[in-house]
């Protein structure tokens, strides 16, 4: 199965990269963008056919390796 894990900084954490990108977008004349946050996408190929079990494994992987729960949130997309 293919899993996509999207990791983003928590809203309560200052994201200076996001601020810099938002300012760069404004410099292009597009001040319609009010916020920007920079995260990361991790794509995993994972064996198994049981969706529930696979999701549980992905939650563990996301919590223990792919994200730092102190400063990041994640969501999992599975196909």
């Amino acid at each position: 199965m293919k899993a996509t894990i999207i990791v983003t900084p928590k809203k309560s954490v200052l994201d200076p990269q996001g601020e810099a990108v938002k300012n760069a977008i404004h410099q292009q004349g597009m001040d319609c963008v009010t916020h920007a946050r920079i995260g990361k996408i991790i794509e995993l190929d994972i064996s198994g056919t049981d969706v529930t079990l696979t999701r549980q494994k992905l939650e563990k992987i996301a919590l223990e390796v792919l994200s730092n729960p102190v400063i990041e949130d994640f969501r999992i997309e599975l196909e």
Binding site: P9, V13, L14, P16, Q17, N68, V70
Partner: peptide
């Protein structure tokens, strides 16, 4: 240790 170290504010 508690907490985390993140990107410097001024980049």
């Amino acid at each position: 240790l508690p907490g985390a170290l993140i990107r410097n504010k001024n980049l």
